[in-house]
Structures are given as structure tokens and as C-alpha cells.
Simulated assay, not measured.
Amino acid sequence: MALTSNKPRSLFLIPESSFRAIYNADALAKVAELTDNDGQIYSAEDIVSDPERFSDVEIIFSGWGAPILDEVFLSALPKLKAFFYGAGSVRSFVTDAFWERDITLTSAYKANAVPVADYTMASVIFALKRAWTRCQRLKEGLAPDYTRQVHGVYHGSKVGVISLGAIGQLVCERLTNLDLDVFAYDPYADESLFESLQVTRVDRLEDLFPMCDVVSLHAPWLPQTENLVTGAMLGSLPDRGTFINTSRGAIVDEAGMLEVLQARPDIFAVLDLLQDEKTYHTNPLTALPNVFITPHVAGSQGHECHRMGALAVEECRRYLNGEAQVTQLTRESAERLA
């Protein structure tokens, strides 16, 4: 039964675990201020099985585990006007039927970009100081090695960024604040973006690796980006170079990377992902001394997830006030998301 209110009716369409992770008490209070919302969690089955009960719903808040927005589901929500997704990519659940309805769709991918950029920044600093290698020496009972010069965090140290999406842009902004020399590769970005970020454009990906002390990957996983980073590129890193991947494992030729890291112990890899994330305990990369690996934790974790819920609520406020959305998606832009 619809709630009695002059505000548009909204509901949470999301698995309970995702709801608890993404929307905190502050977000729930703001949703209640902006819309007519009963604070309950619903599933697609709830809606499709009793469409009359939800016939006046105009706004949906969702997140990880959102159902497929197909024609059957949408027909049960004839007044749906806006879908605010408190997570990243929407490609797994939007359909042609959804786009044909011209429903406002936003994603919190820019909020999720923040912790990934933070993780990358920490990794860059540790890489330029050779922190992991020096830690390994101490664990092996070896004396601290001060004889080999480290790059350090200042002018003259060169960092390369692959792709200038939301994460890549944040990384560049943070890096330029550290007075580093930053280079970037993105064949789809306008020259104005490189200028605004104060980074030097590199036109060929294979040229980025030999010129940079650290290369960080932030390209989306698309059919055309699979195995984008080859073993030959990684092998062209300079002495004591570091490769960072917080994007997706499929974008890197994993067999080629393993071969290079085995042949060149001076190169270091910081990997938050593998092609098959079920192989963390058995993948030979994990055992290499020149690899630092984490189990896909660069993205939003713990309280960081609340940032995504807060953005979804802010998108709703903007929508109701007739203001521009932060991350409104179209069919074309949704296809480019990681």
C-alpha cells in the first residue's frame, strides 16, 4: 500500500547485506527527508508478484546485487522515473527495455574511485621508496640495503597512468600534488584533460613503460582491453620499476607477467587482482618475492562503502531539485564503465 505523502515514493531494491554496507543511518535519514520511503528492503520478486502495491513508486535506491531491470520488472513499476545505484558498473543489470523507458540512472562509481586512488597513491609511494623489497630483506635477516639508490618521491621520479577515467584522474591529481613527473596514456581522452591534470600525454602504451619508474593500470575491463598490458611491456620497465594493477586481472597478460617477474627480480608488481581470483592461494605469482598481492581490496571497504550511499542520496536530492546529476549515465557511457 502506498504511503500518504506529497513527496515522491521511493524504495530500497537491494540485498540486505549490500543495503547494510552501503546505506548508513545518515543516508537513511536523508532518504526519509527527500522521499516517501518506508525504510524496508525489497526484491524484484516482491515487486513483480504484487505490482499494484508498487504502482506509484517513482524512485529506487539500489547497490550491489541489483536485479536485472527487464521488461517484466519494469512493467510492474509504471511510474518509475529514477534509479540511483550506490555502487559502480551498471552493465550487469540494465537492459534495452530500461533504456527505452528514459529513466534517470546514476552510479556511485566516482565515490568508489576514491579508495582505489588512495590505495594507488600508497602503492606509488611505497614503490618509489622500495618499501616492500627492503621489508623482505629484513625478514630474511639481511642488513638494510642503503647502497642502491631509490627513486624517492619528488621531481625526477616518473609515474605513468594508464587510462584517465574517474580513478585515473584522481590518481593524477594526487600525484601532481606530490611534485612527481606524471605521464598518462588514454587514446580516448581530449588534450584538454591532460592539460587540466597537468600530466604529459604519451601516445603509445608501449612507450609508457620504459620511461616510468612506476606504471599504474586503471583501464576498464572491456573486450578490447583484455591482455592490453603485455609481458613485453612489463619487461621494458627500467631497473627497479614497479607495475601496479588495481583494475582487473584480465587486462594483463598474466603468463607474460609471471615470466618477466621471474626473469627480472628487480621489477616489482603490486597486484590487487588476478585473472582468476579463486587462485590467490595457488597462483605462482603469489609466491614470488617481488610481488605484493592483496585480494581485491582496493575498492570500497567498510565505512568507505558509505561514501557510495551518500552519493546515491545526493543524486536524488539533485534530481528532485532539478540540478545536474554528478554521474548520470547514458547507454553509451554505461558501456564504458569498468
Rank of each mutant, 00 (worst) to 15 (best):
D118G: 11
D190W: 08
S18L: 10
T294S: 13
D239K: 14
S75F: 07
D50N: 13
Q149R: 15
S163T: 03
V313H: 00
P51E: 04
V297Q: 15
E195I: 14
D38L: 11
K7M: 08
P51T: 12
G165N: 01
A66L: 03
H218D: 07
S107K: 02
E195K: 11
A111G: 09
V153D: 02
D96G: 07
D118F: 10
A32V: 00
A97K: 03
A166S: 14
S196Q: 15
K158R: 12
R101L: 09
G165Y: 00
T330I: 11
G88W: 01
H296K: 10
A298Q: 11
F84Q: 02
V252R: 10
I59K: 01
I162T: 02
V94H: 03
R20Y: 09
A312R: 03
Q328P: 07
F243H: 07
S216W: 04
T95L: 05
Q275P: 04
D56K: 07
T95I: 06
E16F: 10
R148D: 00
M233A: 04
C305H: 02
G63F: 00
D272M: 05
T104Q: 12
S5M: 12
S196A: 09
H218F: 06
L208H: 06
Q149F: 14
K139H: 04
P223E: 09
S43P: 09
T95N: 04
P220A: 10
N245V: 01
E71F: 14
R137H: 11
D272N: 12
I14G: 00
F209A: 05
P144G: 01
F93M: 09
D50C: 05
T120F: 11
Y319F: 15
G39W: 08
N6D: 14
R101H: 13
P15F: 01
D38S: 13
R130D: 15
K278C: 05
A21M: 06
G141R: 07
D145G: 00
L285V: 10
R264T: 05
P51C: 06
W132G: 00
V252C: 07
A21H: 01
S163Y: 05
T120P: 05
P78A: 12
A263I: 11
G249A: 13
D179P: 12
E315F: 04
T106M: 02
P78Q: 15
T35R: 02
L205H: 02
G63N: 01
